[in-house]
Design a protein around this nucleic acid. Structure first.
Lengths: 237, 237
DNA sequence: GTCTATATGGCGATAGAC
DNA sequence: GTCTATCGCCATATAGAC
């Protein structure tokens, strides 16, 4: 009845990602050395075992501290999780709303830049991003609401970019809500499978995903009928 | 310091999905009534609070049983999780490998049918599918490996379908691995946001996603240069 | 700020009556 | 097969010395 499996070793393409160090560029520069190390340790623990399966001992002992030391720097384990998720969400939003990006006139180049940045950020910081996407249920209701607000701001950036391309005629007449949702899905789901030692660098994956996004937005709908055999998903019972 | 938040009520489009009953068509018909009810209860608990934050008391009390009753039907909480994830993965694989689907000659119609089925299944059973995607870390190493094998079989079905379209010339000369991965991402990520009371029925979402998949596979690569401003994801520090 | 020691409570799983 | 009662364990978080 092993309570936690340390599955750090037996990874697979579909498994949990390896856990390289993303700390230097991720955390706020005003943070002290020990809090930063604790956050980095927590990211690794949460990503591999999940928030609830991670103990405060796991987090602190990985950086050579005793169990109680964590509470000098953070009031609770939940706040550690919140700091991780908040930082990641704010970084992503800032990265796709830099003035130079928002100012791109051509709708095609604009969406291309947005998707490339969104995707490559998630790839570059895929371990922290994984925690940000998978462990939202560990947050308190208040912290959860705060994260949701940031997410909506980010989503709106993409929605507006697709909308602009459709209204200006640069894109095909696609469903804005469903297409922008699909684009975000491509950028988010990679935290499930991305590995730094795979064939794609974050930048390459960003460029490729931007291509896919533009194909979805610029190609007119095909006039196929419904899928053969229908899709009565309940028939598999 | 609420250990668990019962966030059943304050949902959002980005939040946890509502928890309708998916049981009748999902579980094995040979299962007794009580085990089926326990599995359904566990799906709801795991989906809203996560595996580790769910207690065996949560699962059993939701169906009007005492804490110990669960162990008459399942040897451990982990096995309950395994049964859920195993059933879902096997159902999906079976649904996209029905002979009538595999026998579709036209590569375009074949991929369309695959994506429509894969997507609509995940939408139809999105609560159980969410557990299957988000709670893999709760499995034992052995059970995890078994699930991975089923996943690979499913992934290979999509990879082969894209490959065939490319080699026969029905699709554009796209990167098979990356495109099939993106298609699977669209089908999987919906478990994060799908709601039964949204605008799309499972069938409609399946048809739309199949359209997107075909756009990705059939549209030749655009000859855009790299995204403006590059994608140096580390510059957001 | 870090340590050791511990308070406090809840969890998974079992025992034994009915 | 279900119940009540409980065991043994470990979690988060705190107290107080250094």
């Amino acid at each position: 009845m092993a309570k936690r499996q340390a599955r750090f070793t037996t990874q697979d393409l579909e498994g949990l990602p390896e856990l390289e160090d993303e700390s230097p560029a991720l955390w706020d520069g005003s943070l002290g050395d020990v809090p930063r190390k604790l956050l980095t340790s927590a990211v690794r623990c949460f990503a591999s075992n999940g928030f609830h399966a991670t103990t405060t001992r796991d987090i602190s002992s990985a950086v050579g501290l005793s169990p109680g030391a964590l509470y000098v720097h953070f009031p609770s384990k939940e706040v550690v999780l919140f700091e991780i998720i908040r930082t990641a969400h704010q970084r992503v939003l800032a990265y796709v709303t830099e003035p130079a990006v928002l100012g791109i006139e051509d709708p095609v180049r604009h969406l291309q830049a947005l998707v490339a940045r969104y995707t490559s950020w998630h790839a570059r910081y895929h371990v922290a991003a994984r925690v940000s996407q998978y462990e939202l249920a560990g947050l308190s209701a208040e912290h959860y609401e705060e994260i949701l607000e940031t997410r909506h701001r980010t989503n709106d950036v993409f929605r507006a970019a697709v909308e602009r391309g459709v209204t200006t005629g640069a894109f095909a007449d696609v469903d804005v809500k469903r297409v922008s949702r699909a684009i975000l899905s491509l950028g988010i789901d990679l935290v499930r499978w991305y590995r730094r030692d795979g064939t794609d660098s974050p930048g390459q994956l960003g460029e490729f995903t931007a291509q896919l996004a533009l194909k979805m937005a610029m190609t007119p709908d095909l006039d196929l009928g419904p899928a053969p055999l229908g899709t009565p998903a309940a028939s598999s019972a």
